[in-house]
Write a protein that binds this DNA or RNA. Structure first.
Lengths: 357, 357
DNA sequence: TCGCGGCACTAAACCGGTTCACTAAACCGG
DNA sequence: CCGGTTTAGTGAACCGGTTTAGTGCCGCGA
């Protein structure tokens, strides 16, 4: 019987047709669960996200990533499952996921569940995770992108800049941010010519601002949720300060869009009164007016590679040595950045590595 | 053993702890597939989409819908699987999906696979489907929304308007469009005071335009893919005409955004040279400048209700009579609509049912 | 004519849990 | 001290496929 469906060559054609006809007659549908139990594969992979489905899909980054993953999985006949935390626990979510392998998105290296996930026995691929051991890793050159963004602002003459990080937990001190934020922040500092870690930035939760003064450049560092609302909240925080910075670097486009929206509501002209740089280059980054200057990262390609590597890891079994891939980022200068009002560009924007679109 | 995990009250606490400790010691992980086979439920539901993951997620409508579905499913511990067509066949995809139930999105009532899907035995809920028999249905008042949009344009003085429908297949005649497009088109005609079906619109595929003249209003009807690119393509088509309409109604925001982008590139001022109305009210609709006038529909709420109904249908078994829910739509007037250049608003925009945001 | 290899098909073991029927032990009152 | 009843724990059937070993049959060569 099973032969009729799965090994058509192993049976006489006439018999097979007879069986299939009878099956159709009876409306027989093989049980997908039983089939997969017997085959010992689910033909499903999970995308483990650090927040609820509701929150994580508020960032257009995610659908772009899913599109990339889908490119590979659709072709391979593998289904994609979203795996949000269960009751706040990622390891519980992982344990109860019905998958052959998992793509881990944006887990902090010090995440309490990470060890348990690593030992869960399922194949893993990390995305935007700083954790060198145990599984494949796909990442981007966060530092370079952030650095280009900072250098661009510096070249335009900005000396008072706010940096809006991604808040993992609402009240996490700036210096304890996980890999991705830390790397980008380091890149920003490098781009402004600041020595890493020498500034006086102090703890700062959601909405609280830390200030780092070094030479002529003043950095205010804050963190917020990745959403339009988060961006608006960040701007509100900045408005509460004694004066506004001349530029804002955010670590995601959707946050930047929120800052833009907040600025529009507050009557702040972008880029004349406030320059804004995003990160990701989601499609919506070029739907705004002015179009958003942002650090491009190949989101869909990341998804594709992650899916590809994961499927490879699943198929090759254990004989598979982990690989780390770092994809390039590049600043895309569009309309939301300009020299601050009344200031001359001290250094002309350099062309190297800076694309215009 | 099984008791230790699933019926903690049925075992002495000490014994249960001993078992759990031993399990942890050995690194034992229960097989999710076996568990679900025995339980006869997968605790997964599928979202059946009419196009590839790549294409469907190009429309921000989808992530919004997923957010709504996730609201319910996260809370219920149910995983969401994306189910795109397999080799172009939706029924094949449905047959091989590992789920307890399916949310069917945007299937045409005459879709060749629909009957087979209906007989597949899995629980179903339809979303934006015009098919009264066999399963629950969640929809929106397409006609009213489209009608409001048209009435709004009419009131502003527009008499030459293009309507951009959703192309199911690239070369489908306008009059054979499926439920959603047909309903919205009928709404548009009603909003302009045109009798349904009396105009002279002829067949029109992707990019081809049909014209309906009735009284003073001229409607050009075309259809295109739902994506930014599709919107740009539609505008290109219109530019190929002898003259531009004064307004465009599109059946999705992402298409409207594409039209706006194309207009910007072509130096056409929105709304002065061209008014644009979208449909959906995705978040990005208020990220554009000017912000997009659009027909709001409660996307997330739709997702929530669909998920809720599906779970209900799964749990109640067969004793469940299908329900049809139609959620309201409303026009949200923002910045992309205005009176055509040189024309006076013949009728003042009516307030009833028209919200401003 | 007999033996052997190969083909077509069938029967049974297996995947790894859940669940239910059943046994053994503890507990109770009479 | 004993029978009956609850409680704790165990064994086997079952979920519904896949897969492999095995059986019967046929054709071919010796």
């Amino acid at each position: 019987m099973s032969f009729a469906f799965n090994k058509p060559d192993h049976l006489k054609a006439e018999t097979r047709d007879r069986i299939l006809a009878a099956a159709a007659e009876l409306g027989y549908r093989p049980s997908q669960i039983a089939r997969r139990l017997a085959r010992r594969r689910t033909d499903q992979i999970g995308l483990v996200v650090p927040q609820s489905t509701h929150d994580i899909f508020a960032n257009p980054f995610l659908p772009e990533l899913v599109r990339g993953i889908g490119d590979v999985c659709d072709a391979e006949g593998i289904a994609v499952v979203i795996v949000p935390p269960v009751g706040g626990s990622i390891s519980r979510a992982v344990d109860s996921a019905l998958v052959d392998g998992l793509i881990l998105l944006g887990l902090a290296p010090n995440h309490p569940d990470l060890d348990e996930v690593r030992n869960s026995g399922t194949c893993l691929v990390g995305l935007d995770i700083e954790d060198p051991t145990g599984f494949d890793l796909i990442g981007i050159d966060d530092g370079a992108g952030a650095s280009q963004a900072a250098a661009h602002l510096y070249a335009l003459g900005h000396r008072d800049v706010a940096v809006v990080l991604i808040a993992e937990h609402p009240d996490l001190p700036v210096d304890e941010h996980h890999g991705i934020s830390a790397r980008r922040l380091a890149g920003v500092r490098a781009g402004f010519g600041l020595a890493p870690g020498t500034d006086s930035s102090d703890a700062s939760g959601n909405g609280a601002a830390a200030t780092a003064a070094d030479g002529a450049v003043r950095l205010r560092i804050l963190s917020t949720q990745v959403s339009e609302e988060g961006g608006r909240a960040a701007l509100t925080t900045l408005l509460g300060d004694d004066h506004l910075p001349t530029a804002v670097i955010t670590m995601s486009d959707v946050t930047a869009i929120g800052v833009m929206a907040g600025a529009a509501d507050a009557g702040i002209a972008v880029p004349d009164d406030l320059s804004i740089v995003g990160f990701d280059d989601i499609p919506a980054a070029s739907w705004t007016t002015p179009r958003l200057t942002t650090v491009h990262q190949p989101i869909r390609e990341k998804g594709r590679r992650a899916a590809h590597r994961l499927i490879q890891a699943i198929r090759s079994g254990s004989e598979h040595r982990p690989v780390v891939e770092v994809l390039p980022t590049r600043l895309v200068v569009r309309g939301t950045t300009a020299s601050p009002r009344g200031a001359e560009a001290l250094v002309r924007p350099q062309g190297g590595g800076v694309a215009t679109a």
